[in-house]
């Protein structure tokens, strides 16, 4: 375990450094882009003097290591800096966006877990179904998230009028009760979550299936069967409980790819989460914001990996005891 923690800390340090360095090495700086670009209606001129002024205001004229050191100090205080493009505290911006990304991502992961596990259980019971299910899901799991999103957008959302095409809530919507609002949010989240789930659920199906199969071969199941316990009871008490840890671990292991998937799907549905803001931050060379999004997603992924490790370790221990 100690080794794991050390590894996580090292990974974090490396990622933090990379994350700090890369945006600063990118061609262009945050103030260049503010000037003008193709497709814009008006160009606001920014003189070199004003640019210098702003550069020193944001501390970007200081030597690299001074910036790094100040950045670390500020981060340790919980200060993520100030977005140059949006002119807001990065932490405030992230707090606005994070709930939406979390909503999509965790709903999709939870749904995938439930769906994948149920399908695996179903497959165990009905062998006939299993072959087709296996083939179908292994194909579905290979599709890119954004593509499934686009297909849903064109084939479903554009055909029916009660599904919104984009956004997270109706703009200036009028709600007569809290339930109205929740319904609105759910409707907007429906397709992004569906797109994610379709691609993520197969992974859970395979994990659950493998886990169930391995438990079925365990001696205590055979013993239970020999004792003449009812199928349902065995399934509930022995198989399900013992097969669960790897599935739950999978939940946390999937966070890494799910973050990426969510970011893409958000861009398809113009969903106001971290994905859309990340894309803009890169476009505008907004260093503090790029770093903020990055830091947040890295933390989330590393912590999830750690959680998965803990669960796996606990599962192994329990299995060891029950043998």
């Amino acid at each position: 375990m100690k080794k794991k923690i050390l590894l996580l800390l090292c990974s974090f340090a490396v990622i933090y450094l990379v994350n700090f360095t890369i945006p600063r090495l990118m061609p262009g700086d945050p103030f260049d882009y503010q000037s003008a670009a193709a497709g814009e209606e008006s160009s606001t001129e920014m003189t070199e003097e004003l640019k210098e002024y702003l550069r020193s205001y944001y501390g970007l004229d200081k030597p690299f290591f001074t910036q790094l050191w100040e950045n670390i100090k500020a981060n340790l205080r919980g200060d993520l800096g100030y977005s140059i493009h949006y002119k807001k505290a990065v932490s405030a911006l992230l707090l606005e966006r994070l709930p939406w990304t979390a909503l999509i991502m965790f709903s999709a992961l939870a749904l995938s877990l439930i769906l994948g596990t149920s399908l695996a259980l179903l497959g165990l019971r009905r062998k006939k179904l299993e072959g087709g299910l296996y083939a179908l899901l292994s194909l579905l799991g290979e599709l890119p998230h954004f593509l499934v999103g686009i297909l849903l957008l064109f084939l479903v959302a554009a055909r029916v009028d009660w599904l919104p095409l984009s956004g997270a809530v109706t703009a200036f919507g009028i709600y007569y009760s809290e339930w109205d609002w929740i319904e609105d949010v759910l409707l907007h989240a429906l397709l992004p979550v569906a797109a994610m789930t379709l691609v993520t659920a197969p992974g859970f199906y395979f994990t659950a299936r493998a886990s169930f199969l391995s438990i079925l071969e365990r001696p205590y199941i055979l013993a239970a069967k020999a004792k003449g316990l009812k199928e349902g009871r065995i399934r509930r008490h022995y198989i399900f409980r013992n097969a669960l840890p790897p599935i739950v671990a999978r939940f946390f292991l999937s966070v890494g790819s799910a973050i990426g998937g969510t970011m893409l799907v958000e861009n398809v549905f113009a969903y106001p989460g971290l994905g859309t803001v990340m894309r803009e931050a890169v476009k505008y060379r907004d260093y503090p914001l790029i770093q903020g999004v990055f830091l947040l997603s890295t933390l989330l992924v590393l912590l999830s990996l750690f959680a998965a490790d803990l669960i796996n370790a606990a599962g192994d221990r329990r299995r060891g005891e029950s043998l």
């Binding site: 909503l103 965790f106 709903s107 939870a110 319904e183 949010v185 759910l186 989240a189 429906l190």
Partner: peptide, 12 residues
């Protein structure tokens, strides 16, 4: 919509 409610409650 109901399917999503639990998760929603948690994340919001």
């Amino acid at each position: 919509s109901l399917l999503l409610i639990i998760c929603l409650a948690l994340s919001l």
